[in-house]
Design a protein around this nucleic acid. Structure first.
Length: 488
RNA sequence: GGCGGCGUACCCAAGUGGUAAGGGAGCAGUCUGCAAAACUGCGAUGCGGCGGUUCGAACCCGCCCGCCGCCUCCA
């Protein structure tokens, strides 16, 4: 039974979709005016994980993630770059997909764009006006916040509390400073669509109300997600718009992920303390390939519970890599096991590992069912690595090794998107290792020569060869039987 | 000013009433020509501080200290 924290009730609640096994889920995507940063990466990974876990629980998930492709920031960017706003939107939409591919986040089932749903927005705004929940002023339309008695229920604030600290610009045309724009009259050169209130463009919040109901074909959806910074005003306003218009509950669960921070401060454009996904991939050490970089970043972002802040730093990425080294080192040991299957009663070692393997899925589910406790799940994988290493140092039933691999690929791979690097592509070099551009050495020949030197007890030659290999980025470990393990 | 969150070992991080998961770093041991790996053991009598409730608290309550977030665009 999955329990999810619901921002609306501030409690973990048992998740059950409205309609049988079908889950309707909508997540606020990005405004395409710039490259995505790590905060967007985290959100994308977290909700993709929620989707995967729901599917794992045999739910049929209808996952919608939108693009905001008309917005003040896009217009500003277009003006700055002297390009049409559509081109700016297209450029960063493409960049978004590129970043998601880097992260290993597949597309949602539907990825609607705001500009594809203008008609629906105009219709919804008309409905709100008719109900007295919105009013037009000089080509703009504002939501009449005071008329929606539940305004503030998501962010758990009352209207007067919001007003007290309001830093909103005073606009004499608005009845209440907290009234927000549903429709904005467009100035010349700005994106514009016809409407009963004149040519204009939609406000930010209306698109999500319209697209979630349209794409999910239901006025009440199961899960609505996004970053914590969207709780107010964005999601609060979505509720006001949707519930005001339909009279029905808009979303049953509100799920919000925590921030990525730098020196404990929220990563944000305004502070300028952000790293784009692209930058992070590029600044990782040169000896790591793209798949390893993806895995390190994913593991790092998943190593903290999704609602808490994750503090980004190089040191933390290095620690993450060290944790992943354990997994790939285990695989190397697996590949060295030569063990003849023996008949007879299972030994104590076999029974022990079998018990651990049997318990694993149960423990994994228990962790994930508790509001997606990924850090606890990752601890299980680490424990499994230790158990496997212990087992493999004594025995090595092929079936058991296969079962262990299968647990990693099923739970860690398909669900968490980890443990997916081609083992030979994993670099065991320390984070700070700088690949030498030295002439390529014949590794096999040097290793063979070293093995011979060791047999001849010529240890100074042996150590010299080890240094030579190390300089070429080859780590060698001597095994009990005299052979050599090569790691790169 | 209002509202909310957080503070767990050197670093990262689970745990939210029953006596401190896991990873990194470190130290010691087994093994080893050496080294590494792997395994084993050590490591917070303690969970920001002070009180309180309780048979029992990191987990509940109160006060204090520190950090952060939201109240404006933001994943």
């Amino acid at each position: 039974m999955l329990r999810l924290y619901n921002t609306l009730t501030r409690k973990k609640e048992v998740f059950k979709p409205l309609a049988g096994k079908l889950v309707r889920m909508y997540v606020c995507g990005v405004t395409v005016y710039d490259r995505c940063h790590l905060g967007h990466a985290r959100s994308a990974i977290v909700f993709d994980l929620l989707r995967r876990y729901l599917q794992f629980k045999k739910y049929r998930v209808r996952y919608v993630k939108n693009f905001t492709d008309v917005d003040d920031k896009i217009i500003a960017r277009a003006q700055k770059e002297q390009r049409p706003w559509e081109v700016v939107a297209q450029t960063y939409t493409a960049a978004y997909w590129e970043d998601m591919a880097r992260l290993g986040v597949p597309p949602a089932d539907l990825e609607p764009k705001a500009t594809e749903h203008i008609d629906g927005m105009v219709a919804l705004i008309g409905k709100l006006i008719k109900k007295g929940l919105a009013y037009p002023v000089e080509g703009d339309v504002y939501y009449r916040v005071s008329r929606f008695k539940e305004y503030g229920k998501l962010s758990h604030r009352k209207l007067d509390e919001l007003l007290a600290g309001a830093r909103v610009e005073v606009d004499a045309r608005k009845e209440n400073p907290l009234d927000f724009a549903l429709w904005k009259a467009s100035k010349p050169g700005e994106p514009s669509w016809p409407s009963p209130w004149g040519a204009g463009r939609p406000g930010w919040h209306i698109e999500c109300s319209v697209m979630s109901m349209a794409c999910l074909k239901q006025s009440t959806i199961d899960i609505h997600g996004g970053g914590q910074d969207l709780i107010f005003p964005h999601h609060e306003n979505e509720i006001a718009q949707s519930e005001g218009a339909t009279g029905r509950s808009f979303s049953r669960f509100w799920v919000h992920n925590g921030f990525v921070t730098i020196d404990q401060e929220k990563m944000s454009k305004s502070l300028g303390n952000f790293f784009t996904i692209q930058e992070v991939f590029e600044k990782m050490p040169a000896h790591l390939g793209p798949a390893a970089r993806r895995e390190i970043l994913r593991y790092f972002l998943l190593s903290v519970h999704y609602r808490g802040p994750v503090d980004f730093s190089d040191q933390h990425l290095a620690q993450t890599k060290a944790a992943l080294d354990n997994y790939y080192a285990m695989l190397i040991r697996f590949s060295e096991v030569v063990w003849e299957q023996r008949a007879g009663r299972p030994t104590a070692h076999t029974r022990r590992i079998l018990a651990i393997l049997k318990a694993f899925p149960v423990e994994f589910r228990t962790a994930m069912d508790d509001d997606l406790n990924v850090p606890a799940a990752l601890a299980l994988f680490q424990q499994l690595i230790t158990s496997a290493n212990r087992y493999v140092s004594v025995e090595g039933h092929a079936k058991i090794l296969a079962k262990i691999r299968q647990l990693f690929s099923h739970f860690g791979g398909e669900l968490l998107g980890l443990f997916a690097v081609e083992p030979s592509k994993w670099s065991f070099q320390p984070w700070s290792f700088v690949p030498v551009v030295a002439p390529a050495v014949d590794v096999d020949a040097l290793v063979k020569e070293r093995e011979q030197a060791r047999r001849d007890k010529d240890f100074s030659r042996s150590d010299q060869l080890r240094r030579q290999l190390a300089a070429a980025g080859v780590i060698i470990e001597d095994l009990p039987d005299g052979s050599t393990r090569i790691k790169r």
